[in-house]
Design a protein around this nucleic acid. Structure first.
Lengths: 251, 251
DNA sequence: AAATGTATTTCCATATTCTGGAAATACAAA
DNA sequence: TTTGTATTTCCAGAATATGGAAATACATTT
């Protein structure tokens, strides 16, 4: 199946992930192909403006075209634009980092974030793929996902910490509780020492289109404070859902 | 040169740009290829997780992988993260939409934005490519760009409004003025009725790595107010430059 | 229910494109 | 200048992509 296309995409991937510019030989070595082959792939990437040569002999680097196309894909999720100010407000009230994420395939992807302190920042990357079964927004998304996605997720409950839920039955019960309460919490289930609270964002057709919440160091998220955060998160998600035209709770 | 790769990239591009899911036949028609060919390209995109089939017969859609990789590319521009709070503050003080953009090839690309009113929003897209010679941040970036980029830009001074500068000599003079004053302004040069003020952001090695500024409707940006905005923009860009480790003005 | 129409998917022989080695070229360092 | 390394070009041979046809899967109409 379109072998050279697959190779090309792999090269693009590699180029986008690498820190600096990548040389022909370097790419060839990394991919296990010949330099002439790598060279041709790079030429194609340059021709399509996905990459550009750096200086005279500096190798090649990814252009922003990748991001530009990606930004369009994300823009279709108009949740992001609508939620943005509310995410900022949630952060201001909660004084904890606020996140917005969506389901993409069998993973959760952070779409936006408003951070509190610079010091506690960047556990996870915006645009990064993370597991569903042990993150706050991930558990929310999973709780409302298709049976197919749920089934797939349950087959691979990888432990990240001792507190990660790895028993399918327990996770099912947890998801049931999340659906009942409309809110999910985690405590050191993915990253040690980090807790989170998350709730679903509901779209115009009554389906969950995203999840939002706050996360921060356990040291700051004691039970009493968690109760407050749950209310804030719930209020924010309800507000965003209403803006998206979600059917009201009166049904 | 790697024809199937080029076709594949074109398909990816098309998929990312299209509003909804795209069918096999639809893609084939749009690209002028056979359905079997289109089908194979899509298979490759699915195999690499750049696309996914939607439902049973709903065609294919781009995944967020594109954006994910792109987000990494943008993340290397740590200007974005550092400038973010200052951009927000600039917007709050100026009460006009604040923008951050960088040079990518021969274009200006909006990397981040903080908007004022929802009503005046979205002239231009985040992630969008725009001309250098008639936008505020574009002119700044051009003023400090390589000779090669400047030369290329001067060869294609496309007019967007009657006020767009199309005379190379006049643009050179304008760029000279921008370098002297450290600030650029536009009035209806790209979009009719829109004005902007922009200044360079200087990185650790003393080179211009981005430009930031504000833009809004001419009706609000009268000369007196423009003077205030110039100061605010200058202050903000200086502040961000300092955070990036730019060499101080004492030199 | 059956038939029709449309879109997707599979299959395969053929022709085209991709492949990797070798040689040429371009730099940088010794 | 010489040496070493990386990039780029070229080409005959080999492997892969190609498009037509047929099979399959749905949705809509009869």
């Amino acid at each position: 199946m379109d072998k050279s296309f697959l190779k090309g995409l792999a090269a693009l991937d590699l180029l986008a992930q690498s820190e600096g510019p990548v040389g022909v030989t370097q790419l060839a070595r990394a991919m296990g192909i010949t330099p002439s082959n790598a060279h041709r792939l790079l030429q194609a990437l340059v021709a399509t403006d996905f990459a550009r040569p750096v200086g005279a002999r500096g190798g090649y680097e990814a252009t922003l075209k990748l991001w530009r196309l990606g930004a369009r894909t994300v823009a279709r999720l108009d949740v992001k634009a609508i939620a943005a100010p509310h995410l900022a407000r949630l952060m201001a009230e909660a004084q904890e980092t606020a996140n917005l994420s969506v389901l993409d395939g069998h993973h959760m992807v952070y779409v936006d974030r408003v951070e509190t302190d610079v010091y506690f920042r960047a556990y996870n990357q915006i645009g990064g793929q993370y597991p569903l079964h042990c993150t706050g927004t991930g558990k929310v998304l999973l709780a409302y996902a298709d049976d197919a996605v749920q089934a797939m997720a349950l087959t691979d409950l990888r432990p990240f910490t001792p507190r990660t839920i790895v028993d399918p039955a327990k996770l099912m019960a947890e998801l049931e509780r999340i659906r009942a309460e409309g809110i999910a919490t985690t405590m050191s289930e993915f990253r040690e020492g980090i807790a989170s609270v998350a709730a679903p964002v509901i779209g115009a057709h009554g389906r969950v289109v995203a999840a939002l919440g706050v996360s921060g160091p356990l040291s700051r998220l004691k039970p009493a404070r968690m109760r407050l955060l749950r209310d804030m998160v719930r209020t924010t998600s309800a507000r965003v859902s209403r803006l998206l035209g979600a059917p009201g709770p009166e049904s």
